[in-house]
């Protein structure tokens, strides 16, 4: 393969576009499956929304904006985490995990590209849900994408890190799906703790918490990205990158252990 560079920008762009195209083709080919996933989340939102209105009464409207932003973040956090954590199990079941491992790009970079492609798919699901929620409630919130997107990306780095960690654990230890469900509850708690993190600073180190806090300010209070305190943004970036790097390192460790144990690709 003279002159062939497996990690050239062309090769990386080609690979990520192949992954995104694959996901979109599968979503399009099985529309009921895709619609079912979005409608399931929408039904969950309706349950919270209708239930909240019934129990809390007219004052529920005051917290509606926070609920929508929180749910929007949960949908994307859950999608980014679950798509990655479950992906390796799915690929192993399909018999294609070994094919991904054999990519000349390398399995670690492939995991990063998978994160990137899952992020793109996650955004499409998140914004579709956001549109449904706003149409249903008639609520209006700030949709300053220049402020929202960077915060969401930095926030989701932590759940992508968790996804990589559980993906690696799946490759090495196989059936760890029982833990997947528990992590979802933890994610909800982390999002809910966003406002409390102003009092208990240590909470900012949890995944999603700082992002939840800043996203509420941007979407509900109309604060622009550049109006946020640099220290708050630095914490957001630090926590996101730290979880991502830790998740990636543990993913590499788990896949190395899987190779040593001869179980790569088994499920």
């Amino acid at each position: 393969m003279n002159g062939y560079c497996s990690r050239s920008p062309t090769a990386l762009v080609s690979a990520v576009s192949a992954l995104v195209r694959r996901d979109l083709l599968i979503m399009r080919r099985y529309p009921l499956n895709t619609a079912g996933a979005v409608l399931g989340l929408y039904a969950l939102f309706l349950l919270v929304y209708v239930g909240g209105r019934s129990f809390v009464g007219p004052s529920f409207g005051e917290t509606l904006g926070a609920l929508i932003v929180g749910f929007f973040l949960f949908v994307m956090a859950n999608a980014s985490y679950q798509s990655l954590a479950g992906l390796f199990a799915t690929e192993a079941k399909w018999g294609t995990l070994e094919q991904l491992y054999l990519s000349p790009i390398g399995f670690g970079p492939i995991a990063v590209l998978l994160s990137l492609s899952s992020l793109l798919v996650t955004f499409s699901i998140g914004f579709a849900m956001l549109a449904l929620m706003l149409l249903t409630t008639g609520e209006s919130i700030s949709l300053d994408l220049l402020s929202i997107v960077p915060i969401v990306v930095l926030t989701l780095l932590s759940t992508i890190g968790l996804g990589l960690l559980f993906g690696g654990a799946t490759v090495r230890y196989k059936n760890v799906s029982a833990v997947f469900g528990l992590v979802k509850f933890a994610l909800v708690a982390c999002i809910a703790l966003g406002p409390a993190s102003t009092e208990f600073v240590v909470l900012k180190l949890l995944p999603l918490t700082q992002g939840s806090y800043l996203l509420q300010r941007v979407m509900n209070e109309g604060v622009r990205l550049w109006e946020l305190e640099p220290a708050e943004l630095s914490v957001l970036a630090f926590v996101g990158i730290a979880y991502f790097v830790l998740g990636y390192a543990l993913f590499r460790y788990c896949t190395d252990r899987a190779r040593a144990a001869g179980v790569m690709g088994h499920y």
């Binding site: 393969m1 560079c5 080609s14 990519s103």
Partner: peptide, 12 residues
């Protein structure tokens, strides 16, 4: 075939 070509052999 397009997927595996683009994943593993882009530019070849």
């Amino acid at each position: 075939l397009e997927f595996f070509s683009r994943m593993n052999a882009a530019g070849r």
